Amino acid sequence: MELTKYEIFADAAKTGNFTKTADRMGYTQPAVSRTLRLLEQELGFPLFVRQKNGVELTSSGQMILPYVRNLLAEEKLLAQQVSEIRGIHTGRLTIACFASVSRVLLPHFLAAFQASYPGIQVELMEGGTDDIVRWVTENVADFGILSHRHIGGLSWLSLWRDPLVAVVPREEPFLSMKAFPVEKMTAQPFILSADGTDYDIHHMLSTTKIRPTIRFTSKDDHAIVSMVANHLGMSILPRLVVLDLAHLVHMLPLAPAFDRTLGIAYKEKAALTPAARKFIDQIVKTDVSKIQELDGLEDAAEMNMAMGE
């Protein structure tokens, strides 16, 4: 079956721009436009409407997109399984993850993975919890690396515990404190991660029943840290988020302690491609305690999926 036209359709739905799709897939923009026009003629209805800054799916295009993504996911699985049988390690792997994971954790895993499987192309998609769950559910990504909260019906593999920390300006009295009592959050203006980005902070606030004075909300970790550095308030963030920005602010453990569980979310084990299985196996086998900058990341107790089976 010739699936190129469906691959182009799915990518254009993702990018919202024929030129971007052409660049990503190695075609010219006129070739992409022509392919999609022929597909529309074949199907008998329009798939896209042109907007000022790109294209948008029609209602008909939105209706068939999940089926097209399922078709492409099955074809991808078949192609990689055939390559695996023939002893050829090729394919494409799409990983959805938090920005902090892609900045701090993934480079270590990617280096080892690419050394073993140089023929597998890896694409990263960064977003919040809601974004990642949607991308995995809709077959846009092979799996997600995120926190365990609010993953819906996806399957789960626990990997690490990441402590939540108080993020405060680099000044007294914070520099003299060994830990930050959570009840003192009410004495500072508070900067909160937006709903749908990371639910663990909201869960902590709900558990402690503390109501800080929220002055700002943001989906951007860098923006939150920058606001703290500029004395606009304090925040609570996962330690992994602040690691590469710690020179701008001061981190303090919370009293009492709270953490989040990071791991891998996927639709079902049988649907994972060989490339996805190999990458997950690479992650599971890595001892993060030996990576110096990750010394605060602890192994989670639960390992509920053996990828080598």
Rank of each mutant, 00 (worst) to 15 (best):
P173Y: 08
R161Q: 15
I291M: 00
A13S: 15
L93A: 07
P189M: 08
A257M: 12
A12T: 15
Q121C: 01
L110Y: 05
Q62R: 15
N230I: 02
N70E: 14
N17G: 08
R239N: 14
M227I: 00
S226A: 13
V225N: 05
R69L: 09
P181C: 11
K269T: 13
V136D: 02
L232E: 15
T286Y: 00
E40M: 07
F180K: 05
S59R: 14
A300R: 04
D142Y: 11
L124D: 01
H89A: 14
I151R: 11
T94N: 06
A194E: 10
L159D: 06
H150I: 04
I64A: 02
P212C: 12
M234C: 15
T286W: 03
K14C: 05
T208C: 12
R149V: 11
E42H: 12
P66S: 11
M204Y: 06
P238G: 15
D162E: 12
K269M: 14
T286L: 04
G196N: 01
L205R: 13
A271K: 10
D287P: 05
D131S: 02
I151Q: 04
M307Q: 03
L254K: 13
I191F: 10
S83Q: 14
D195Y: 05
H150G: 00
E2M: 04
L65S: 07
G87M: 05
N139P: 00
L110M: 08
N230W: 01
E42W: 02
D287C: 00
L124M: 12
K52A: 13
V288K: 08
N17A: 07
A275R: 03
V101R: 01
R161E: 15
H108C: 00
R170L: 13
V165G: 07
V182H: 08
F18G: 05
Q80C: 07
R37Q: 14
L297K: 01
T4C: 00
Y117F: 13
H203Q: 15
P253S: 08
A246K: 14
E126Q: 13
L294S: 05
F109T: 00
T19D: 09
